[in-house]
Computed example of a mutant assay.
Amino acid sequence: MEERINRVKEILVIQGKSQKWLAEMLQISTTAMTAICNNRSQPHLKDLRRIAEILDVDVRELLVPSKS
């Protein structure tokens, strides 16, 4: 089981937006976006900031906290 690091998929669901839409906004492939949403790969920090801007959330909301 992969470690859950980002919450991009959760935020998209909450906002009613699709992975395809976000991929288009970031100008990346839907395959790359799916890998990010499924935590198979992680976006670079600068891309994470762009995702936060596009989704209008604090970048910290996109990450799973490391401590409870």
Results as ranks from 00 to 15, higher is better:
residue 6 N to S: 03
residue 24 E to D: 11
residue 42 Q to K: 13
residue 27 Q to L: 08
residue 56 D to C: 15
residue 59 V to W: 01
residue 28 I to F: 06
residue 24 E to W: 04
residue 48 L to S: 01
residue 14 I to E: 15
residue 46 K to I: 08
residue 55 L to V: 04
residue 16 G to Q: 08
residue 9 K to G: 07
residue 11 I to P: 00
residue 40 R to V: 12
residue 38 N to Y: 09
residue 67 K to N: 14
residue 44 H to C: 05
residue 64 V to K: 10
residue 21 W to D: 14
residue 13 V to K: 15
residue 22 L to P: 04
residue 64 V to P: 05
residue 65 P to S: 05
residue 30 T to N: 15
residue 1 M to S: 13
residue 10 E to V: 15
residue 11 I to M: 00
residue 9 K to S: 14
residue 63 L to A: 05
residue 45 L to I: 14
residue 48 L to Q: 00
residue 47 D to S: 14
residue 4 R to E: 09
residue 47 D to N: 14
residue 10 E to H: 12
residue 19 Q to F: 02
residue 6 N to Y: 02
residue 63 L to W: 05
residue 23 A to N: 14
residue 54 I to E: 00
residue 53 E to N: 13
residue 39 N to S: 03
residue 34 T to L: 15
residue 64 V to W: 01
residue 6 N to K: 07
residue 8 V to F: 01
residue 50 R to L: 09
residue 23 A to Q: 06
residue 8 V to C: 03
residue 66 S to L: 12
residue 11 I to A: 02
residue 68 S to W: 09
residue 45 L to N: 13
residue 56 D to M: 04
residue 53 E to T: 11
residue 16 G to W: 15
residue 1 M to C: 05
residue 30 T to C: 04
residue 7 R to C: 03
residue 36 I to R: 11
residue 7 R to Q: 00
residue 19 Q to H: 04
residue 15 Q to C: 02
residue 63 L to E: 03
residue 31 T to M: 08
residue 16 G to C: 06
residue 6 N to L: 07
residue 22 L to I: 07
residue 45 L to E: 05
residue 20 K to Q: 06
residue 50 R to A: 10
residue 14 I to H: 12
residue 18 S to G: 09
residue 68 S to C: 08
residue 3 E to T: 14
residue 59 V to T: 12
residue 32 A to D: 02
residue 19 Q to N: 10
residue 53 E to R: 11
residue 9 K to W: 06
residue 10 E to L: 06
residue 61 E to K: 03
residue 28 I to G: 09
residue 5 I to A: 04
residue 60 R to M: 00
residue 19 Q to I: 07
residue 43 P to A: 06
residue 25 M to Y: 13
residue 1 M to Y: 13
residue 34 T to I: 08
residue 48 L to T: 01
residue 59 V to S: 04
residue 54 I to F: 01
residue 41 S to Y: 06
residue 34 T to N: 13
residue 4 R to M: 08
residue 17 K to H: 13
residue 20 K to D: 06
residue 4 R to Q: 12
residue 28 I to M: 10
residue 49 R to E: 07
residue 34 T to M: 13
residue 50 R to I: 02
residue 37 C to R: 10
residue 7 R to H: 00
residue 54 I to G: 00
residue 22 L to H: 12
residue 39 N to F: 12
residue 55 L to P: 02
residue 52 A to I: 03
residue 3 E to M: 10
residue 54 I to V: 09
residue 47 D to V: 14
residue 67 K to F: 05
residue 33 M to I: 04
residue 6 N to M: 03
residue 22 L to T: 07
residue 5 I to E: 12
residue 64 V to F: 00
residue 32 A to W: 07
residue 18 S to R: 05
residue 68 S to M: 05
residue 15 Q to K: 14
residue 23 A to E: 11
residue 22 L to D: 15
residue 6 N to H: 09
residue 21 W to P: 08
residue 15 Q to D: 07
residue 22 L to K: 04
residue 33 M to R: 02
residue 26 L to M: 15
residue 1 M to Q: 08
residue 44 H to K: 10
